[in-house]
Computed example of a mutant assay.
Amino acid sequence: MSHVNIGKTYSGPYKAMLDFNDQAVAAGKDAGLSPLLVELVKVRASQLNGCAFCLRMHCADAIAAGETADRLAVVAGWWESQYFSPEEQAAMQIAERVTMIGDHGRLVDRGVDVDGILSEKQIAAVTWLAVVINSWNRIAISSHYLVHP
């Protein structure tokens, strides 16, 4: 596959993605989601998609919002730790469901009662955030965004 930066080649869809992102972030704020929970959703989806560019960005954003290295170190195994609140666990379960939506063989039920933990607005907002970060992951990976130390 060639190394075409799709956002630079066609800026219209890229600008629409920026607006889409802003709308999803606004939904998260309206639903009362914490900035750390929002970043955890972005980090978890980016881990599953293997998007180094988005991982670097959203780990840095999480740290800027007060996240700790200990918690970031165990996001990939969040269900095996006691680091995350029930709301954060529910959000990461949603992120996994959205990210692996077509891979039912890998989709694991982590035993989190999403409906019993998050409100309908929160579930919808987390789902939109997961859809957006999955889109960004695909843009960054297919455009081969550089990730230098």
Rank of each mutant, 00 (worst) to 15 (best):
W79P: 00
A73R: 07
A69M: 00
W79H: 12
M57Q: 11
S81D: 03
E80V: 01
E67D: 12
V98M: 10
R71C: 04
E88T: 01
A45I: 02
P35Y: 00
L107G: 02
G105C: 08
R71Y: 06
Q93V: 03
I101P: 00
H58K: 09
A90P: 10
P86E: 05
G105A: 15
A64Q: 13
F84Y: 07
G77F: 12
Q89R: 14
D70T: 08
E67I: 06
R106F: 11
V108W: 08
L107F: 03
G105F: 10
W78D: 08
C54H: 11
A73T: 04
Q89E: 07
Y83R: 07
R44E: 04
D113R: 01
V75I: 13
A76H: 04
G66V: 10
Q82W: 00
D70N: 05
C54P: 13
A52Q: 01
I101T: 08
R110E: 07
Q89D: 01
G111H: 02
A52H: 01
K42M: 09
V38N: 06
R56V: 09
C51L: 07
V114L: 04
G66E: 09
P35E: 02
A95Q: 04
S119I: 07
R71G: 04
V74T: 13
W78R: 03
L37V: 14
V98T: 12
N49I: 10
L37T: 15
L118M: 03
F53Y: 15
S46F: 11
D109P: 01
R44D: 01
R106K: 15
S119M: 02
A76K: 00
A65V: 07
G66M: 09
I117R: 05
D61T: 11
Q93W: 05
T68L: 14
G105S: 12
E67G: 14
H104F: 14
F53D: 02
R97F: 06
L37K: 04
V112C: 01
V98S: 10
G116W: 08
S81P: 02
F53G: 03
N49F: 13
A60T: 12
V114S: 05
D109E: 04
G77E: 08
W78A: 06
V38L: 14
S85E: 09
G116R: 07
A90M: 10
Q47E: 14
D61L: 13
M57C: 06
Q89T: 01
S119W: 08
D103M: 14
M57H: 10
L37S: 11
H104A: 14
L36S: 03
A91W: 03
A69F: 00
S81I: 02
L37D: 03
D113T: 01
S46I: 08
T99Q: 08
A60W: 11
T68Q: 13
V114C: 03
D109W: 00
T99G: 06
V75E: 00
H58L: 06
L40Q: 08
V112I: 13
E39P: 03
L37W: 05
M92W: 03
L55F: 10
Q89K: 11
G66F: 04
I117V: 15
S46E: 12
G66C: 10
I101A: 14
N49Y: 14
L48E: 07
D103K: 13
G77D: 09
C51P: 04
D70E: 10
